[in-house]
Design a protein around this nucleic acid. Structure first.
Length: 424
RNA sequence: GGAGGCGUGGCUGAGUGGUUGAAAGCACCCGCCUUGAAAGCGGGCGUACCCGAGAGGGUACCGGGGGUUCGAAUCCCUCCGCCUCCGCCA
């Protein structure tokens, strides 16, 4: 959520920066109009309430003095009716204003590259060379089928298209990766591992920015008014919702492995064969809460952690900074890590490392007290995958396939998997 | 799921209809005292919003929402959370 003060003090700047995301300025004007109406109404009701409070104070005094209080009571009652009417109006305005503000994306950071869509993204750096096999590389679905570790048809039978089943060494590889990722992130990168709920409240989703705008991307449990998490970012970030942290508590760095549930509405069919875009997948997520001063440096550190994981696994990658038009809803600045899948012949996004500034903190009301005293301030939140399983597995499988149809397992995983290769 | 209890400021904990935003203690901050520290003494110390250039003024908030009343932390309803007992269950 954006600070309403920005709109009042510098509406043109807000418009300009939203324009770099491809938005027109009408939303800004609407917010300003509502805000004006709100303040006017608040002033009126508060004046009435002050009068009523005054009268209520007089009543016992007059009663003690033996004077009549009927007139005052009637007066107060009438003011009460006026207040009730105005309060109703105010509630409507507040709700509308809140919805407007919650529906506006974050302002891109000043040094995010300007651009309309992904073609405007900037290659920051790359590590390793994309693998080119001297033979006809198979896509992971063919590898999985031939070697029997991936069963897409049965996933579809059980739950519908977009769900997959791993069997035998496939399942074991997934589990090994999850535990390896958690181990590296906790022991080497300094994150505290958390085990969190996979089902969350609407408030939590509003806090991270998934609601109210992206409800159609979420699986809902209507009976209990809960949603399945699209990422561990939601429970992890909301762990501190509504709290005022001590500055000594910061920075906070946590990670969690969770399944992620995404409806991926509008993505059915087309280019989504295999497991590159599915409704349920496993992911290890990294989340930081920090001060505004530290957030930029923390962002770089976060990207470094995600990159380090790929390097240890020997997966070539490139880092792309998203341009203003491609930036996610709540992000001010974002780096995507992409890995090459030689079978699919495409780059896959395995990690999206975003700095949200105080956007989420404002929504979730997460504050801290600088130096342990003074006014509470909003923290900055950041998160990134470390890493997303299916795409990582795609790249490992397709990169490490051999001409004879077998697949090598990276050294760092061999003990956990209990094998050095996958073979029919 | 059933019955009962509870939910007050950073923490502990008073307060059952009228200057109670809320006693007291702890924690924290400033000052005095002290060679220094502790203790002691004095003072300060919630959040949000509105008006105001500022000084300052106002409004709201005692788990959330609604109601009764001239007036609610205090009474009623409802939801949520926690605790105890019972039931059910991996």
């Amino acid at each position: 959520m954006l600070d309403i003060r920005l709109f009042r003090e510098n509406p043109d700047q807000v418009k300009e920066r939203l324009a770099t995301r491809g938005m027109d300025g009408s939303a800004v004007d609407e917010v300003l109009a509502l805000d004006g109406k709100r303040r006017e109404t608040v002033s009126r009701t508060e004046a009435l309430k002050a009068t009523r409070n005054q009268i209520s104070k007089e009543i016992p005094q007059r009663a003690k003095a033996g004077e009549s209080i009927d007139e005052l009571k009637e007066q107060s009652r009438q003011i009460g009716e006026e207040i009730a009417t105005l309060d109703g109006v105010l509630r409507d305005i507040d709700e509308e204003l809140r919805l407007q503000l919650l529906s506006l994306p974050n302002l891109p950071h000043g040094d995010a590259p300007i651009g309309e869509d992904e073609s405007g993204n900037k290659l920051v750096r790359s590590w390793g060379e994309p693998i080119k096999h001297p033979f006809a590389a198979k896509a992971h679905w063919d590898l999985g089928d031939a070697l029997g570790f991936l069963d897409l048809p049965r996933g579809a039978k059980v739950s519908g298209s977009g769900f997959y089943v791993l069997k035998g060494i496939g399942a074991r590889l997934e589990r090994a990766l999850i535990s390896w990722l958690l181990d590296v992130n906790t022991t080497k990168n300094g994150y505290t591992e958390c085990s969190v709920p996979f089902v969350v409240s609407p408030d939590s989703l509003t806090g991270t920015g998934n609601l109210p705008k992206f409800e159609d991307q979420l699986y809902k449990v209507p009976l209990d008014n809960l949603y399945l998490i699209p990422t561990a970012e939601v429970p992890l970030t909301n762990l501190w919702a509504g709290e005022i942290l001590d500055s000594a508590d910061l920075p906070i760095a946590v990670c969690a492995h969770t399944p992620c549930f995404r409806r991926e509405a509008g993505a059915a069919g087309r280019e989504n064969r295999g497991i590159s875009r599915v409704h349920q997948f496993h992911k290890v997520e990294l989340v930081h809460l920090t001060t505004p001063e530290e957030s930029a440096a923390t962002h770089e550190k976060l990207v470094g952690h995600a990159c380090g994981l790929l390097e240890e696994l020997g997966v070539p990658y490139r880092v792309v900074e998203l341009c203003t038009g491609d930036l996610g809803f709540g992000a001010t600045k974002c780096y995507d890590l992409e890995i090459w899948a030689p079978g699919m012949e495409t780059w896959l996004e395995v990690s999206s490392c975003s700095n949200f500034g105080d956007f989420q903190a404002r929504r979730a009301n997460i504050r801290y007290r600088p130096d342990g005293k003074g006014k509470p301030q909003f923290v900055h939140t950041l998160n990134g995958s470390g890493l997303a399983l299916p795409r990582l597995m795609i790249s490992l499988l397709e990169n490490n396939q051999r001409e004879d149809g077998s697949i090598a397992i990276p050294k760092v995983l061999q003990d956990r998997v209990g094998a050095s290769e996958i073979r029919a």
